[in-house]
Simulated scan of single mutants.
Amino acid sequence: MMNTQILPNAFYGIQNFIDSLNAANAQGESTYTPKADYYETEGGFALEVELPGVKKEDMDIQVEKNILTVKATRARKDEKFTYERSFRLADDIDTDNIKVSLENGILKFDLSKKAQAAARKITIA
């Protein structure tokens, strides 16, 4: 462990973070940021998140204020793996109609765009 007495004040927070990671690793826990990929589709976007070996009942997916957060856990032998990643969604994504599927360790989100109001002609009275 690094001696925090010799670090400038700006680095104390970083050292606390490193110490907490070391403590988690000593307890057999590891936290990962899963790989993700996104691409545009005909009606919006697709987002794919890699979560190998994670079952759907071990996932927590939430959307709040256009932030999509994926949390998942997986246990193997004496180790516990935690995955967490957040994504900022564009304002034109219909967050009420997000479709999610899990296949072969890939969590896929279909993010459709909100229906745009059709243009209409306005007459002068």
Rank of each mutant, 00 (worst) to 15 (best):
M2K: 08
N3V: 03
N3W: 10
T4I: 14
Q5E: 14
I6S: 07
I6N: 09
L7Y: 03
L7R: 02
A10Y: 07
Y12D: 04
G13T: 04
I14F: 12
Q15E: 12
Q15W: 07
N16P: 03
N16C: 05
N16D: 12
F17N: 12
D19E: 14
D19M: 02
D19C: 04
D19R: 01
L21Q: 13
L21S: 09
L21I: 13
N22C: 09
N22S: 13
A23K: 15
A23T: 10
A24W: 00
A26T: 03
A26D: 09
G28L: 02
E29W: 02
S30T: 14
T31H: 00
Y32Q: 11
P34R: 04
K35E: 12
A36R: 08
A36K: 03
D37W: 13
D37K: 15
D37M: 08
Y38I: 00
Y38E: 14
E40G: 06
E40L: 01
T41L: 02
G44F: 02
L47T: 07
E48K: 15
E48R: 12
E50G: 04
E50F: 06
P52W: 05
P52E: 08
P52Q: 01
P52I: 06
G53Q: 01
V54F: 04
K55D: 12
K56C: 00
E57L: 12
M59F: 08
D60I: 12
I61W: 09
I61S: 08
Q62Y: 11
Q62M: 13
V63G: 03
E64R: 14
K65M: 10
N66E: 09
N66P: 11
N66H: 13
I67W: 08
I67M: 13
L68W: 05
T69L: 09
T69Y: 09
T69H: 09
T69W: 03
T69D: 07
K71T: 12
K71G: 09
K71A: 09
K71V: 00
K71W: 01
A72S: 00
T73A: 03
R74G: 02
R74P: 01
R74Q: 10
K77T: 05
E79Q: 06
E79S: 08
E79P: 01
E79Y: 03
K80W: 00
K80D: 04
K80Y: 03
F81R: 00
Y83E: 03
Y83G: 00
E84H: 11
R85C: 05
S86R: 14
S86V: 08
S86I: 05
F87K: 04
F87E: 03
A90E: 12
D91Q: 05
D92Q: 12
D92Y: 10
I93P: 05
D94S: 00
D96K: 15
D96M: 11
D96A: 13
N97Q: 07
I98C: 06
K99P: 05
K99R: 15
S101M: 10
S101T: 15
L102W: 01
L102G: 08
N104W: 00
G105C: 02
G105A: 06
G105S: 07
I106R: 04
F109W: 07
D110P: 04
D110A: 14
D110V: 06
D110Y: 10
D110N: 15
D110T: 10
L111E: 01
S112Y: 10
S112H: 13
S112D: 14
S112I: 10
K114T: 11
A115Y: 07
A117R: 13
A118P: 08
A118K: 14
R120Q: 14
I122S: 05
I124Y: 13
I124P: 05
A125N: 15
